[in-house]
Design a protein around this nucleic acid. Structure first.
Lengths: 335, 335
DNA sequence: TTGTAGGCGTTATCAA
DNA sequence: TTGATAACGCCTACAA
């Protein structure tokens, strides 16, 4: 209704000057008697600092930009929840942008965030190229990169140990007697996909199992891709006795394919999926899966960014490599 | 590195006044020759409007606040994706806040958004109380409420026809010969849950089927709740021949319970779930489900808000009630 | 068509 | 401890 109250109004009502009110707000020294008067006036006027004006003056917006490929994947939305929560508790709000896994949109949105004068950025990049980071670093905005290692660029990074996540999963299959093991990986130009594929190859070599290239499928980290690649794997001769799928959406797709073919897990095919414990329980039988430390990823990212935002650049650039968990259920059979 | 360029810099470089540059930017009339000069200067300086300063002057932040219970549910994150996309294309950025299904946090966050001077708010409220809307309406900030009808308050509203969604699902079961039909609903104080429950009761009455209160379960819209209530339903005597679960997370929980009890769908129990087509396909056999028009909800909400933001209040308060779809798969047996 | 000047709400410097 | 005042970058009468 009425315009929001300003410092001026508070000053008028309390009979003090604008400068004094400002000090009161920002923790300067103010006579106790006056503190009371000011507090009273602020209460009656329901005064709040105008953060826009504040931002203009201080060059700080108390806002962090979060840039992710899409909100549709539980992996991303879960991380964001955590980050948002921590930042908010520290007085920062967040602008979440998705770029639909499109490099051009990604660039546009980075520009957008820079225009919005965010104080910091959390980025889950599409690919490994660092060009897009130029714009940001030119403005001296701290960036935390999650889930990917960007070459040739100094910035704090939080990833999971994808290689060993994959290594351990496949090793589990090997230990249970499997040799003919299929893997469905993500896009070849994506860091996490490369690492997960490396893990597969390394453990196979460590156990001196011959690698059949036909059992290594690259796809798009999407439902349909998982479905299609699973179908292809099932057509191999001899058919693999076990399959490892390296992200959540493709795991869904693969399971659907398996169901359609009326193949039973684990009797006819052993299976290890990725992410999302709830889903793993819904499937029959419950799936063994690799679980990423989503909460931890979010928490560490938020904390390191807050540190940079405070101007503390010790240990820059920081690099965190978090361990995954392996959840053993009933989708793997000993052979 | 260097500070970002300001209008002043552009003015200096082009030899024109600040006012002229401002006109150029905001579409005022400027001599063609000068337009070229200004464009050139802007390009060389890489000048961008400082939206903070602009906001201070215009009292507009070009920002919309989105307040949701949690990001963990695909129903919410999907809607947000759509809204964010449309708003962005119209020059608005979004601040997404979650309140963890806690009324107090919800209030705090509303205050937070108001402090951030958002131009508008999209709200998915926790309950039906309208008190929280006071703060917003006092500031004349347009609000669009999604997924709930707030009594005693004028604001644009977008909901789905939950009652008939439920009616149709249960009717499908009845048509297939079922009479003893269990339903797992959400919290009794939540609008969508009430409506879905009403739909059940109405269709049962329409078909003159006696209602057994023991077959109506209220829970919390969460995975564990769905699991627990399903277990309870399975202990009823005689056991229901069909069950309808009224949101996604509870559907997951219910399916897990059914799997654990080694009950087979649809031979021993017919089943209809809610939301998320992908999941429905993963389960074996694929589940028949009620699908909400997520994209449409997002699109309509964004459009109506944009309209209000432009100052167009025709038809206020608007009320949209969207229809759901029923996806028939293989989880219902004729008896 | 262009320029001058005042003000948006805040912070920060410097005197008092 | 307080207060007057000049910024911050932009917009907008109003005058030229």
């Amino acid at each position: 209704m009425a315009n929001p109250a300003t410092i001026k109004d508070v000053a008028k009502m309390s009979g003090l000057s604008i400068a004094t009110i400002s000090k009161y707000i920002n923790g300067g020294s103010v006579r106790d008697k006056n503190r009371a008067i000011i507090a009273d006036a602020i209460g009656r006027l329901d005064y709040r600092v105008n953060e826009i004006a504040q931002g203009l003056k201080t060059n700080k917006t108390k806002t962090v930009g979060i840039l992710i490929p899409t909100l549709d994947r539980i992996f991303y939305s879960a991380i964001i929840s955590v980050i948002e929560d921590i930042l908010l508790k520290n007085g920062y709000s967040t602008i979440i942008c998705t770029y639909m896994e499109d490099e051009n949109i990604e660039k546009t949105k980075i520009q957008f965030l820079v225009n919005k004068m965010v104080d910091g950025i959390v980025l889950m990049p599409f690919d490994k190229s660092s060009a897009k980071l130029l714009e940001i670093s030119r403005k001296n905005i701290p960036v935390v990169v999650i889930d990917q290692v960007i070459s040739d660029s100094d910035c704090d990074t939080v990833v999971v140990d994808n290689l060993n996540a994959s290594y351990n999963a496949v090793e589990h299959l090997i230990t249970e007697g499997h040799k003919r093991i299929g893997i469905i990986c993500g896009p070849e130009n994506v860091y996490t996909a490369q690492e997960r594929q490396k893990g597969y190859i390394r453990v196979m070599e460590d156990y001196s199992i011959k690698i059949d290239k036909m059992l290594i499928k690259n796809s798009d980290y999407k439902f349909e891709g998982g479905y299609k690649m699973m179908m292809e794997l099932l057509e191999q001769k001899p058919v693999p006795t076990a399959v490892f799928v390296t992200n959540y959406e493709m795991t869904l797709g693969a399971v659907v394919a398996i169901n359609e073919k009326n193949i039973s897990i684990p009797e006819q095919l052993s299976f290890i999926g990725f992410d999302n414990m709830q889903m793993a329980e819904v499937v029959k039988p419950p799936l063994s899966i690799v679980v990423q430390p989503v909460r931890q990823i979010g928490a560490i990212s938020a904390e390191i960014l807050l540190k940079r935002l405070k101007g503390d650049f010790t240990g820059f650039p920081a690099f965190f490599r978090l361990k995954t968990d392996m959840l053993i259920r009933k989708s793997v059979k000993k052979i």
